[in-house]
């Protein structure tokens, strides 16, 4: 679906990620984890073409992204940044902005655009909020509105940079459940998460990074059992079953 081949990238000539080889398969959730400054967001931004790599190739469905126009690419992959401007517009209008790659001049939404937007709003349970001003929403609601915008953009690949940061615990789980639903719709999700336990519980694949390099990229269970997370973060971990329901959870803690 999307493949990075020998990619190095960074800022102001300084390499942050080095010689990255990775591919993300269709209909999976991949979570990138690692310590602050290890290059997680840089990898996400490079893969989504927000940052031009110093070296290497990025292929989307076999096509080099440098050969694709901005709009062509925006129909294949979307990126939801962690920090955003919060515009003073209605929920409906913000979600409609997700259709921008499909709007020809003079940017008048067609029937199909309106239908996709309605479905996205419905999908995120925002029917009662369409006339609300985005700047007045709570963190959890705001994140759902932005996810509706991403859904309206209708791309096969979705990059999410720390989608649960700054949210209350209930909203964190709500967002992760939405991410799971996006996967069920056949979307390929690549996200950065700080919460290791959620990363292991909600992902099909986990990519552990350190100092700009991929340390291990495998299923959550394999990554957990490799103990590489413990080594890099300097923590200990346990696998526990919650409420005798065989719901596997991963607990990380610091040993005295």
């Amino acid at each position: 679906m999307i493949r990075l081949y020998k990619v190095s990238a960074g800022y102001n000539g300084i390499e942050v990620i080095k010689n990255i080889n990775i591919s993300f398969s269709k209909g999976t959730i991949t979570t990138i984890v690692g310590k602050n400054g290890c290059g997680k967001t840089t990898l996400l931004k490079t893969a989504s073409n927000l940052l031009r790599p110093f070296r290497g190739e990025i292929l989307v469905k076999g096509k080099n992204i440098t050969d694709m126009s901005r709009k062509e690419l925006a129909k294949e992959l979307s990126f939801l940044p962690q920090l955003r401007n919060i515009p003073n517009i209605t929920v409906y209008n913000l979600v409609m902005h997700g259709r921008f790659p499909y709007l020809g001049f003079p940017r008048i939404p067609q029937k199909k655009d309106k239908l996709v937007v309605s479905n996205a709003i419905e999908g995120m349970g925002l029917e009662d909020s369409i006339e609300k001003n985005v700047s007045e929403l709570s963190g959890g609601q705001l994140q759902r509105v932005y996810l509706a915008m991403v859904l309206a953009q209708d791309t096969d690949i979705i990059f999410l940079d720390e989608p649960t940061t700054y949210l209350d615990i209930n909203h964190q789980f709500e967002i992760l459940e939405i991410v799971r639903r996006l996967k069920d719709m056949g979307k390929t999700i690549v996200m950065v998460l700080h919460d290791l336990s959620s990363a292991l519980s909600y992902s099909d694949r986990v990519c552990l990074m350190d100092k700009g390099e991929i340390i291990i990229y495998d299923t959550p269970q394999t990554v957990f059992e490799s103990r590489e997370i413990n080594r890099i973060f300097g923590v200990s971990s346990e696998e526990v079953l919650v409420n005798k329901e065989s719901l596997k959870q991963y607990v990380f803690y610091v040993k005295d």
Partner: peptide, 17 residues
């Protein structure tokens, strides 16, 4: 309309093409 997209912030606007 493009100016509206620009006010969403650089990264979101770029991601929208």
């Amino acid at each position: 309309y493009d100016m509206n997209i620009l006010t969403l912030g650089d990264e979101t606007a770029k991601s929208l093409g």
